[in-house]
Design a protein around this nucleic acid. Structure first.
Lengths: 153, 153
DNA sequence: AAATATGTATACTAATTAGGTATGGTATAA
DNA sequence: TTATACCATACCTAATTAGTATACATATTT
């Protein structure tokens, strides 16, 4: 029961873009280096993020990637739902036919409740929150968009 | 991000044993049939449950398995921790060396918080709770140990 | 004491999934 | 028009999960 690297990488990509928002397009190679993600794998993740409207890109030389929306409006819950194939703790919550015991199973509803509690929390944490929290923990960290983030919302 | 079949089976095994607690030893073949779990796979799970003190067994003809402690004292959190290899949503929470970005990662702490919320919930749900809830949802269900369960604790 | 029904232990294998590569594009600024 | 970027998809491989197979030990019944 663990999150995939796609989800973990995805969150880190969004944070990196959020910390340079509206300043300049960040190239794939740059994100790959700073986040230690293989370039070709990163391109897949960026494509997913772009199709979902979290990221926009600029083509050609001097091109790159930018956050497409305010980091205050992107939650970890959204990131997890985007990258995890199965978002529930057990498949039978949304697909009862996956388990032929589903109709008589006494735990199924409890797994559903626990899943709900987890996503309530994940939905309550935004990319902006993570950057703000980091600002408190590491006041010296380079973080040009913090003021901007705080003005949003 | 989903629970393994071991965890799901494990919870169902405990429920089945709880519903016959102190009445008679239940044979592997019987659990296998009612829960639709392969016999040899079930034996492995029962062994794990036994080593952890949740289940006790009686050998020889007319032998079988019994719950070793009150269903009020067994939580879903305990079951998940027992059967899931990795219990945190991300490995780097307890093993920072698993990810070389751990020290500078701005999401890591959020994954830890979400993991905590999840287990707080799972720890609050006991096997006895599940049987009680089922009693309310299906008043006609066969459930000989319900009264017993309610007297415990 | 033997037969037999049960649980115990470990090694192996098949299936699935996750993680990452490889290849070949397409767009755009210089 | 060419170099530099992003875009799209097919493929591969290693790890994990789920389940089997084999052999053994124990205890009740007769």
């Amino acid at each position: 029961m663990k999150l995939s690297t796609k989800t973990r990488y995805g969150a880190r990509i969004l944070i990196e873009l959020a910390m340079n928002r509206e300043e300049r397009a960040i190239q794939v190679s740059e994100i790959a280096a700073s986040q230690k993600i293989p370039v070709k794998y990163l391109e897949q993740l960026l494509r997913t993020l772009k199709l979902s409207g979290f990221v926009k890109s600029v083509r050609g030389p001097k091109g790159g990637h930018l956050l497409a929306k305010s980091p205050d409006t992107i939650s970890l819950g959204q990131v997890v739902r985007l990258f995890e194939g199965q978002t529930d703790l057990v498949a039978c919550i949304s697909l009862p036919q996956e388990c032929d015991m589903a109709s008589e199973c006494l735990v199924r509803n409890a797994w559903k409740t626990a899943t709900g509690v987890l996503y309530d929390k994940l939905d309550s944490i935004s990319i902006a929150d993570l950057i703000r929290d980091a600002g408190e923990a590491f006041p010296d960290a380079y973080c040009p968009s913090l003021a901007q983030v705080e003005n949003v919302g």
